[in-house]
Amino acid sequence: METIRLTTVVGARPQFIKAAALSRAFAAHNAAGRGPAIAEYLVHTGQHYDHAMSQTFFDELGIAEPDVNLGVGSGSHGTQTARMLEGLERILAARRPDAVVVYGDTNSTLAGGLAAAKLGVPVVHVEAGLRSFDKAMPEELNRVLTDHLSNLLLCPTRAAVDNLRRESLIRGVVLAGDVMYDSLLHHREQALRAAPPLAGLTPGGYLLATVHRAANTDDGERLKAILSGLGAMARTAPVVLVLHPRTRRAMESLGLAVPEGVRAEPPLPYLAMVRLQAEALGVVTDSGGMQKEAFFLGRPCLTLREETEWTETVDLGANTLAGTDNAAMTGWLAAVLRGERTLPGDARPYGDGRAAERMVEAVVEHFCRG
């Protein structure tokens, strides 16, 4: 095989970050001239269509413009996934790539995996094997189904490999490491050298918060409790709340205001978020990606969920699961201020920053065997 033809499917912020790291590794492999070349065709589903949540990430991370943007936009899970399936099936049937690469656990992930599998095209799943064990989460359904559709399962952690083994998924499983760690190492110095993204913040003197998961935004009582908890913490330390469009719409529809002491900001580019996390007293989020980024940057994290797929962060004491419990939220902040939430300095459960290189090696080996 002289060239491995891949179609990559992305649609949301975390996938752009992961795809950037792997695309750089593809380019390095091609430049080295060892083995078959890798040709990548990039499809953006348009799941994240807000400029600050999509195009700015492509610009900052140096990702090539998508070859196709399906422009799916928002909608119910069924509607969104169906539109993606229709568009992706048409593209894959015409191009017949050697494999489809999907990332993480979004509707774009499932649609890419399902469209490929139905057409007999092999599936490569980056970030395979993660489990929260909560099937009420759409993301859990997406990741489980995609794993069982996949031919090459690229795992970020040993726990992910073990999860797949328990589901009798052994063939094609590779422990590669986490490409988000690759990306953060690649961009961290650039982020820290840039001008502060927001004025008036004292490094180490504020909390950075995000809320976007449907389980929190679409449940009025949960969202109200989270905002109340942020307000309670703001009486001790300023809180910067980066508002996802879904969260802003939910707050408006429910008549919920930003609490006193909480500073609301629109979505910010990747490098700005890295800088804000690096200089925060702590991170408060329901985002899986930000749980890891806080871990990588050595910042304590409070997760606004009752479970997490990133169990290593909890096991190492860097991440606390609070759900919407206000007492747990303020108790965590008190512990942070006492210095009781610190990251073990030698902990590297997500690899050494060379995950993308291992993924390229795994792709070449898998598709050139025999």
Rank of each mutant, 00 (worst) to 15 (best):
V239W: 12
T330C: 06
L92W: 01
L175M: 13
N69Q: 13
S253W: 06
G73M: 09
A278H: 14
N69D: 12
A93D: 11
L297Q: 09
Y270L: 11
M137Y: 14
V123H: 02
A136I: 02
A334Q: 14
V274E: 07
L175P: 07
D182G: 01
T308H: 09
L268K: 15
A272I: 09
R299K: 13
L6S: 03
A93C: 07
T236G: 06
V144S: 02
F367D: 00
V43R: 00
H29W: 07
P196Y: 07
L130K: 08
L208G: 00
G331Q: 10
L61S: 03
D178C: 12
A25S: 09
R143N: 08
R165T: 13
R193M: 10
G120M: 02
G289A: 10
P245E: 02
L207C: 04
A257I: 01
N142S: 13
D315E: 15
T3W: 02
A194F: 11
G317P: 10
A19M: 13
T157W: 10
L227Y: 05
L198E: 12
D50E: 13
P122T: 00
R248G: 03
D346A: 15
E293L: 06
A278N: 13
I4R: 00
G353R: 01
L297D: 07
D352M: 08
A328F: 08
A328L: 15
V101Y: 02
G261F: 07
G282P: 03
V274Y: 08
Q55D: 11
T146A: 06
Y181A: 03
S228R: 11
M359T: 03
L343Q: 10
P14M: 08
V258E: 14
V68P: 03
T109A: 03
R354P: 05
L6K: 01
L297M: 04
R188I: 07
R299Q: 07
T45D: 09
M251R: 09
G113Q: 09
G200R: 04
A280S: 15
R83W: 05
D134A: 14
V314N: 04
L152A: 00
A355G: 08
D178L: 01
A356Q: 10
A195H: 08
R263C: 12
S132C: 13
V262W: 05
P245D: 01
V101M: 15
